[in-house]
Simulated scan of single mutants.
Amino acid sequence: MESTKTDEYLARIGAARPRHPDAEALADLHLRHLRTVPFENLSIHLAEPIVLDEVALIDKIVTRRRGGFCYELNGAFAVLLRSLGYQVTMLAARSLDGGSIGPPFDHMTLRVDAPDPWLVDVGFGRFVHRPLRLDPTIDQADPEGVFRLVETDEGDIDVLKDGVPQYRLEQRPRLLADYEATCWWQQTSPKSHFTRSLVCSRLTEDGRLTLSDRQLVHTVGQEREETTLTTDAEVLAAYRDHFGIELDTVPHLGITP
């Protein structure tokens, strides 16, 4: 990525260019990304195909000031981190939910060496605020809970939050193109969580803001404030004012690329 585009990306998340590609700077970039670039699946319900190409991802997140889901958010963040001197490896994961496991390449996450290895993930919705050490011997406290990495007999890693499995992480390096088939499935299959839901969410300094279809939810600690938006104008204003997303059309469930 060109230096000017790197600067634009850093400005997008309100970050200064790090002096060194170390763990402290990585944690700061990670948190700023979560607070400014929303986790959203609006493209699926605006009939916008999701293109897993570095140029397209940077254009969407930096130039168009949109968000995305895991392939887009972690894919773009990988480009930024590499441009800043970090060693980044894409890893595949499968979500774990109540004993069921998602399809292969269900999720993209990152290994970042800074210089020690860290699990970096700005694309899993409500998850860690800061990177996790890739160390299966320790509990790691985060504002979202206590996380632990557990090695499986097959050599994968289960990521647990407060003892509850979140996803199973493979350790084999992957390329962006490896995720294309599952990304297409996520956009089109009636079994996909993303075709059955409409969400835009980001971390805030005191909690989280989420717009789920027409329900705007502001969570602070254990307090939850919900507002139902009744008009298209209110929905478009909420995307603009709370998430920095300028839309001409309100996305609707049932519209897919």
Results as ranks from 00 to 15, higher is better:
Ala47Cys: 13
Arg133Cys: 07
Ile138Gln: 14
Leu91Pro: 01
Leu175Lys: 14
Leu73Ala: 05
Leu175Gln: 15
Glu24Ser: 14
Leu34Gln: 07
Lys161Ala: 14
Glu144Asp: 09
Glu48Phe: 12
Val164Tyr: 10
Thr89Asn: 07
Cys200Val: 06
Thr195Glu: 01
Thr36Ile: 09
Val250Gly: 00
Leu31Phe: 10
Leu110Tyr: 00
Phe105Met: 11
Ala15His: 05
His45Phe: 04
Ala93Met: 09
Gln215His: 11
Gln186Asn: 13
Val235Gln: 02
Arg111Ser: 02
Tyr71Lys: 06
Gly14Arg: 08
Arg82Leu: 02
Phe69Gln: 05
Leu46Arg: 09
Arg126Tyr: 12
Ser212Ile: 08
Ala78Asp: 01
Leu132Gln: 07
Pro117Cys: 02
His107Val: 02
Thr89Leu: 09
Pro103Cys: 11
His33Asn: 12
Asp113Glu: 14
Tyr239His: 07
Cys200Gln: 05
Asp116Gly: 03
Gly125Ile: 07
Glu24Met: 11
Leu84Gln: 08
Asp59Trp: 13
Val128Met: 15
Pro18Leu: 03
Leu211Ile: 03
Val122Thr: 01
Ala56Glu: 15
Trp118Thr: 00
His20Lys: 14
Gly75His: 00
Lys5Pro: 04
Trp184Ser: 15
Arg82Ile: 07
Pro136Val: 06
Asp28Val: 15
Tyr9Glu: 04
Pro103Asp: 10
Leu169His: 12
Pro251Ser: 03
Val120Ile: 04
Gln87Trp: 01
Ala78Arg: 07
His20Ile: 13
Pro131Leu: 03
Ser3Phe: 00
Asp142Pro: 13
Arg32Trp: 11
His252Asp: 06
Glu8Phe: 08
Ser197Tyr: 08
Arg224Leu: 04
Ser100Gln: 14
Leu169Ile: 05
Phe105Glu: 04
Phe194Val: 05
Thr231Val: 12
Tyr179Gly: 11
Leu81Phe: 00
Arg174Trp: 00
Glu72Gly: 02
Gln222Tyr: 11
Thr152Tyr: 09
Val62Leu: 01
Glu154Ala: 15
Thr63His: 11
Lys60Leu: 05
Asp162Val: 08
Phe105Leu: 05
Ser197Asp: 08
Val128Ser: 15
Phe194Cys: 12
Asp178Gly: 03
Ile50Pro: 02
Val159His: 11
Glu48Leu: 14
Asp232Tyr: 09
Glu8Pro: 05
Ala25Leu: 08
Asp162Tyr: 10
Val79Trp: 07
Pro136Met: 03
Leu134Asn: 03
Gln187Cys: 15
Ala141Met: 12
Ala177Cys: 13
Thr188Asn: 15
Thr6Glu: 04
Leu84Asp: 02
Phe194Gly: 09
Ile255Met: 14
Glu223Ala: 15
Asp178Ser: 02
Gly67Pro: 01
Leu209Asp: 11
Val79Pro: 02
Lys191Asn: 13
Glu205Leu: 12
Pro165Ala: 11
Asp139His: 15
Leu34Pro: 00
Glu205Tyr: 07
Arg65Trp: 10
Ala23Met: 00
Leu209Ser: 08
Glu234Gln: 12
Arg148Leu: 11
Pro190His: 13
Arg202Ala: 06
Ile157His: 06
Pro18Met: 00
Lys5Ala: 10
Leu216Glu: 00
Ala16Asn: 07
Ser201Glu: 14
Gly99Gln: 09
Pro49Asn: 13
Ser3Leu: 10
Phe194Pro: 05
Pro18Trp: 01
Leu253Trp: 03
Glu8Ala: 14
Arg240Asp: 13
